[in-house]
């Protein structure tokens, strides 16, 4: 937007920019209050957070006791490993499945193709709970309750991943593919030598999105994993209770550590993360 009158420093556009920024800055700070205070709670015994508010003696009462308690009371490293394992395996399998399924849906035109796609979208709409209980029964019959593979197996076909992959395939230019076909490439060569390299950045963004999502998964792992050694980090957070009273410091410490990996991954890849997710929805 061009300023109509360039002589005034505080013309209306500038005022709007500054006001918007101030409003948003305040609002964002308020929004991040829970996060900030959780980090604070993990370092300071709760009684002293009042004084932190008033700015006194901040660094004297800082302690790593919360973090030490976390490692003492729970097999935290094992649980972190579980989270990592589950995130990596689920993401990988879902990507592979989505890659081929989405290709099958976009590359060729055949009757009922769009119907299949609509079916996949429909599976995303159905609340996961409707499926979770019977899935639990199936996993039980397979003897996979308490097993990490029991968590992975039912959701390898991920409607979300397939949907995004399809958007990626659709955004690829047809001309290159046609040139390749004229040159006599086989279908698999086209898939791996042309589509895959071109889609790599988008697939990378999708990987991060899926990874973070699986790291934070709660509902389904809650049903399948009940032993502390096999639990994931989000499940472990609710365990720091002592006769009904929640111990804040270790809980906060565990929260911070659980939050760390997705946060770092997100901050590194913010632009790609957000734009992949948004653009596919907007162009859908």
């Amino acid at each position: 937007m061009n300023a109509v009158c360039r002589k005034k420093y505080f013309n209306s556009d500038r005022v709007i920019k500054i006001t918007s920024f101030l409003i948003m800055a305040v609002f964002t700070l308020i929004m991040l209050v829970p996060v900030v205070f959780m980090v604070l709670y993990s370092f300071f015994p709760t009684a002293d957070v009042n004084t932190v508010m008033e700015g006194a003696n901040i660094f004297k009462s800082a302690s790593l006791e919360g973090y030490r308690d976390v490692f003492r009371q729970t097999p935290f490293l094992k649980m972190a490993y579980n989270s990592l394992w589950l995130s990596v395996v689920q993401t990988l399998l879902q990507l592979i499945m989505a890659f081929f399924t989405a290709y099958a849906i976009t590359r060729w035109k055949y009757p009922k193709r769009d119907l299949i796609f609509k079916f996949i979208i429909a599976t995303m709409i159905i609340p996961t709970v409707a499926v979770m209980i019977p899935n639990y029964i199936i996993i039980n019959k397979m003897g996979l309750v308490g097993n990490k593979w029991g968590v992975v197996l039912p959701f390898i076909a991920s409607g979300y991943a397939i949907f995004l992959m399809r958007q990626f395939f659709k955004s690829m230019p047809e001309s290159i593919v046609e040139a390749a076909m004229i040159d006599g490439c086989s279908e698999f060569q086209i898939l791996f030598k042309i589509y895959l390299p071109m889609m790599l950045p988008a697939i990378a963004a999708l990987t991060i999105i899926l990874f973070v999502g699986h790291w934070n998964d709660y509902q389904w792992p809650l049903m399948v994993l009940s032993k502390p050694e096999s639990m994931t980090l989000p499940l472990a957070l609710v365990r720091f209770e002592n006769e009904g009273i929640i111990e804040w410091m270790p809980t906060a410490a565990a929260c911070v550590m659980t939050m760390l990996l997705p946060l770092i991954l997100f901050l590194i890849t913010q632009k790609a993360f957000v734009e992949t997710f948004a653009d596919s929805a907007v162009k859908g």
Binding site: M31, F37, M38, L237, V238, M259, P262, L267, V274
Partner: peptide, 21 residues
């Protein structure tokens, strides 16, 4: 980015956070 951070945080973590404050 800042607005999007609550989405990155696990639901159980955010539940705990809100319980604190």
């Amino acid at each position: 980015t800042a607005i999007y951070i609550p989405v990155i945080i696990s639901m159980s973590v955010s539940g705990m956070m809100w319980q604190f404050i």
